[in-house]
Design a protein around this nucleic acid. Structure first.
Lengths: 147, 147
DNA sequence: CTAGCACTTGGAGCGCACTCCAAGTCAAGG
DNA sequence: CCTTGACTTGGAGTGCGCTCCAAGTGCTAG
């Protein structure tokens, strides 16, 4: 098998887009349990970069670093049950947040339309009451909103 | 016109689900510019509760409190341009985050399937190489992933 | 061998969004 | 009038995720 080139922290930083300090921080927290060292220096393998990319994916979808640590540590040749449990829970949370975001998106869309309508009429004061606006919005745009 | 009942901070907390300290904090930051007081005590109108609900909507979709403050302050009978600009920018950010979340959802779905497959085969070590797994995943589930 | 540079560590500091506290004020019930 | 309790303020403290720093170590080119 290929000896798999190992990268310095600066190279890993360039490849991952994360600052070196953040990589060190993640290592300290235990987010990269398989990271190697040669005479004290961290050496990143391709597997480490793949793990890092998963860390970023979980982080950017709102998983706390402590939970990511638990997930990354629950590896090895043992049963994948621990990882499955964490992932299923996270999946549910991501779905919930997606729903919330979609609702917010609709609300923001209505608000934008609301202020555009105010501009057309020459001032917020000239807008009809909210109930009429909601009706008009639904009719004009075909969209619903949850005001 | 109706005198519109005004609520104490405890009542506003119950109605909004936000702790009183958070309401005071938001008021300090200027997120509720129209909030009244009688002899020092905050009095929340229905309009204030509606404003609060918008604050929560923006907050929960990732807008910093300082930007929410700018938005809530840019009110009055003047032009709605400032509010429109902030909303359009926020809308774009929410859309971007939605896309990112959807991608993460797909990736997590694949990871879940991956560990389920590992369980079926009796260990991660027995899994075929990633390229074969991706093919099989697409075939079995009809889903794509961005691994 | 030496200079320079990338790297190491432990720990301090920061920005955000709360969260809690002590000391004081006000209004309503008895 | 007095007590009780909900409210006020300014300020300190917390948790998270970085971000920066000083002091020290070790590869590498000259």
């Amino acid at each position: 098998m290929k000896p798999t080139k190992l990268l310095s922290i600066a190279e890993a930083s360039a490849r991952s887009g994360l600052p070196p300090d953040t990589l060190r921080y993640y290592d300290r927290l235990g987010l990269l349990p398989h990271l190697r060292r040669t005479s004290g220096r961290r050496r990143f393998s391709e597997d480490d970069l793949a793990a890092l990319s998963l860390v970023v994916c979980l982080r950017d979808t709102g998983m706390p670093l402590a939970s990511i640590r638990d997930f990354m540590r629950a590896s090895g040749p043992g049963t994948p049950d621990a990882r499955l449990a964490i992932l299923r829970k996270h999946r549910a949370e991501v779905s919930a947040r997606l729903d919330e975001y979609r609702r917010a998106e609709r609300r923001v869309d209505f608000k934008i339309w609301y202020y555009e309508e105010a501009k057309r009429l020459g001032g917020i004061a000239r807008l009809p009451p909210l109930s009429a606006l909601l009706k008009q919005y639904r009719k004009e745009t075909g969209k619903s909103t949850n005001w």
